[in-house]
Design a protein around this nucleic acid. Structure first.
Lengths: 343, 343
DNA sequence: ATAGAAACTTTACGCGCGGAAAAAATAAGT
DNA sequence: ACTTATTTTTTCCGCGCGTAAAGTTTCTAT
């Protein structure tokens, strides 16, 4: 059972009793050869455990099977989760997903784009940092590589955008909080990293005005991606100062809310919709941990599956389309309100 | 300012007024050419924004500059965090880190190893799934690719192991809980995915016996990587049944503890070291979110930096050593007790 | 100035594969 | 059995770079 080790496609073709171009054809599209030869090749693959040299393939093909996936921060389980779904879909479609995280830093994001360019990917799914992104660099990148933006939109960049409809998030949470009690104040970072945050604030203000209430936006200080810490510190400061304008709080995102709830716990402020509760807290994202906060968080859930699927589908379409669309499309998925005991 | 686009190293060398072999030499080791020619090359790089084709390089070098990083589950911020540190160190050293997550599945882990083999990496840092890993496959992989295991040890596999000293974790938490109150029970999954869990249980039993107390191990049901959910469900069941054997609980890991604390909150059981608290809960790992649980979690912290650094250093040494060590070493880093208000 | 070392150029081959073109073999249909 | 369409083989060239060998230029030190 000791076959001589196959070194390349030439030897593999010889061992299968076929010519190299035929074998090459098979690897590029198994359906393009006669069923009988296909069987012979697949038997030989099984027998010799041969696979073509990926570097030689990528060097010679006009287009590789690589797909770049770039997220702003993998240590945020939200992105880990969506990256997982995207990776899976890419693999199923026969691509090689390559996952990158900017870990919150512009320099790193630029470096990733630089590396990615060298990898000549068939396409890239990019969730940009947002405010911290280097617009010029991304623009340049998008000229070279077919790119679909997701999660975080940057006007005009990429051939398409797929994300969540921030208005749908906020309108549902505001509407629910208002209907089931009092209208909320909005709790957010003063200088949010992510453009979604701005859209959410605007949606909040718009909803409040539509419902005939005065909007209250509470802005807390802090930079970077340590949202829980920023939320907690900000909440402690605001709560200690007394005077929340309302007894309901809508946090811009779940990670801030996690910090907010932690602050409430520290200060022995009971959160929830019970009689004995001083405050209701809701939020947006349905972060994987929001189910386990104390109390569990009422939040507007991303349609993770749809965003991941649609991003991937759009990119595949883009690739088949030769790398560009006539028109840049923006696809937004609505939120689903998840009621838990925090509000 | 419209230079003709440089297509390859030949053209680049011509544009720099040098020969291709010299330029090639530069890219393999910038210090190996005369300072004056180095300057010329670097000026040309700046001017033409040229970089060598990575696929051609990888095809021709005996050893690539790729380094594979494999973790069991990226959606666990613990692994995202450690992966981040490892990636950074690899980049600094001029390597190309490639990050993979098995997302808790054996099949996926095997597929990753398969892909990784094709990428002919200089080395691989592997944190295996543990119990779910396919020992035979990993063993085979380690014969082909220089591999250092980290976080989760599998006896005899890989050229070295770097991780945390589970005894140090548990001994400190048990000792602290005992000293500051009563000795704890141990809360864990019945069939833990990770070998560290077993080591922790054994360490708990050993510590308790050493201190002259009877160990109590509480095992809860559940499979997979949804530790918070498993912890919460298990805790609800145990707590509702009454009869915790002790008023202190040591959870095997922070994610279980997050679930445990969530259950306590639901049942209005006050956790902490205050007079009005019924229970103290401590744990292991210093998960990024353990600072924001309610109450904040007392836990034994991994020395993230040391584990990441040592893993990388060990791999570099392994690579320089030609891919094998005379002796398989195991390096363990002790824990640092982090006191918060949960215990 | 001159020998010797160091750096560079020239030439050439190899890596493993994609892919084109023409010839040969095989299959399908009447 | 014969034509025709399809598939496979043969024979090439090209991709962009690593790398070796031999010859030439440039630097360094006496």
């Amino acid at each position: 059972m000791t076959h001589q080790k196959i070194r390349n496609m030439e030897e593999f073709a010889a061992a299968s009793g076929l010519s190299r171009p035929t074998v090459s054809k098979y690897f590029n599209d198994p359906g393009s050869v006669r069923p009988s030869t296909r069987e012979r090749i697949e038997a030989a693959i099984e027998k010799y455990d041969y696979r073509p040299n990926i570097f030689a393939i990528n060097q010679n093909r006009k287009l590789t099977k690589n797909i770049g996936i770039v997220v702003p921060h993998l240590a945020d389980p939200f992105f880990a989760e969506i990256a997982r779904k995207i990776e899976q879909r890419c693999i199923e479609a026969g691509f090689w997903p390559m996952l990158f995280s900017a870990y919150g830093e512009k320099k790193h994001e630029n470096d990733i784009l630089d590396s990615l360019r060298s990898l000549r990917p068939a396409g890239v799914l990019l969730a940009p940092l947002g405010r911290a992104s280097d617009r010029a660099e991304i623009e340049k990148f998008c000229r070279d590589v077919p790119t679909v933006l997701f999660d975080s939109n940057i006007d005009g960049l990429g051939e398409a955008f797929v994300g969540s409809d921030n208005f749908s998030f906020v309108s549902q949470t505001v509407e629910y909080l208002t209907r089931s009690g009092e209208p909320p104040s909005f709790f957010e970072m003063r200088t949010p990293a992510n453009p979604n945050a701005n859209k959410r604030r605007l949606a909040y203000i718009q909803m409040m005005e539509r419902l005939g209430f005065e909007p209250h936006v509470i802005k807390v200080d802090g930079e970077g991606w340590e949202f829980e810490e920023i939320g907690k510190r900000g909440a402690l400061k605001v709560l200690k100062a007394g005077g929340l304008p309302t007894n309901a709080i809508l946090c811009s995102n779940d990670r801030l809310a996690i910090g907010f709830l932690s602050a409430c716990y520290d200060l022995e402020i009971r959160v929830g919709r019970g009689e004995d509760c001083a405050l209701r807290v809701a939020s947006n994202d349905d972060h994987p941990f929001s189910k386990f906060t104390c109390p569990p968080l009422t939040t507007a859930a991303h349609d993770y599956d749809s965003v991941a699927n649609c991003s991937v589908e759009t990119l595949f379409e883009l690739i088949e389309n030769g790398g560009s669309f006539q028109r840049r499309t923006e696809t937004l998925f609505p939120a689903r309100l998840v009621l838990r005991s925090s509000a």
